[in-house]
């Protein structure tokens, strides 16, 4: 392995990492917002919108991100909606992630005993107050492992961004290999940079999970 090659590539990878992180976290942010929105709609049993949520979740969960990105990037301009590659990336990730988050939140909610809701209602709380103060905090801690898995999954999925010519980590590595054929160096750097991006997330998740343990059911 040629260390001088590695050293000269590091700045390129660093820029790619920053771009990947920026778009990735924007995507994760939108995934949370969309997932929460879907969950509220489902829990408050809002008619019509519930149906929309179901269609959305199934559509996004059952098609590859690659296809979704193609659709956003190449098909939308045909009907006059033109968005930049970067917006396209974070939007695509957010839409996909929203569907996954909605399902993860749902499984967290399913773990909450019905008597929790009933005792909140019996104290005169509205459905919204019950969700906000009693159900969601418990569901959040029950879903923590799933949420963390989603975040890591979404950040890894950024690797398909290269197809819409975003200069993310994957794009940079493929580009450099294509130009200079330093395959080993390029791939080693690629793995290292993905680890730099994702290991802290895993660690943070472990800490969060431990912190949220208090919400466990104790009998």
């Amino acid at each position: 392995m040629d260390m001088s090659v590695i050293n000269s590539y590091i700045p390129l990878y660093r820029d790619a990492l920053l771009l990947t992180l920026r778009i990735g976290w924007q995507g994760v942010f939108w995934a949370f917002i969309i997932g929460l929105g879907c969950t509220l709609i489902r829990q408050l049993r809002i008619p019509v919108l519930r149906g929309v949520v179901t269609v959305y979740v199934e559509l996004l969960r059952n098609t590859p991100l690659l296809v979704q990105l193609f659709f956003l990037y190449f098909a939308l301009p045909k009907i006059g909606i033109r968005i930049s590659a970067e917006v396209c990336g974070s939007l695509g990730l957010g839409l996909l992630g929203g569907a996954y988050m909605a399902e993860t939140f749902r499984s967290g909610l399913d773990n909450i005993a019905p008597v929790q809701e009933e005792s909140a209602l019996s104290l005169g709380m509205s459905r919204y107050q019950t969700l906000r103060y009693v159900i969601f905090p418990q569901a959040a801690s029950a879903s923590m492992a799933g949420i963390l898995a989603n975040v890591i999954f979404l950040l890894k999925e950024t690797s398909v961004f290269s197809v819409i010519s975003l200069m993310d980590l994957m794009f940079t590595a493929k580009d450099l290999i294509g130009m200079y054929a330093k395959t080993i160096e390029c791939l080693t750097l690629l793995v290292m940079f993905y680890l730099i991006m994702l290991l802290p997330v895993s660690l943070l998740g472990t800490v969060l999970e431990r912190r949220l343990r208090f919400a466990e059911f104790g009998n």
């Binding site: 009933e118 103060y133 009693v134 905090p137 919400a215 059911f217 104790g218």
Partner: peptide, 8 residues
């Protein structure tokens, strides 16, 4: 009947 306190 079941303990219905909010665990969090």
């Amino acid at each position: 009947q079941s303990y219905d306190l909010f665990p969090h």
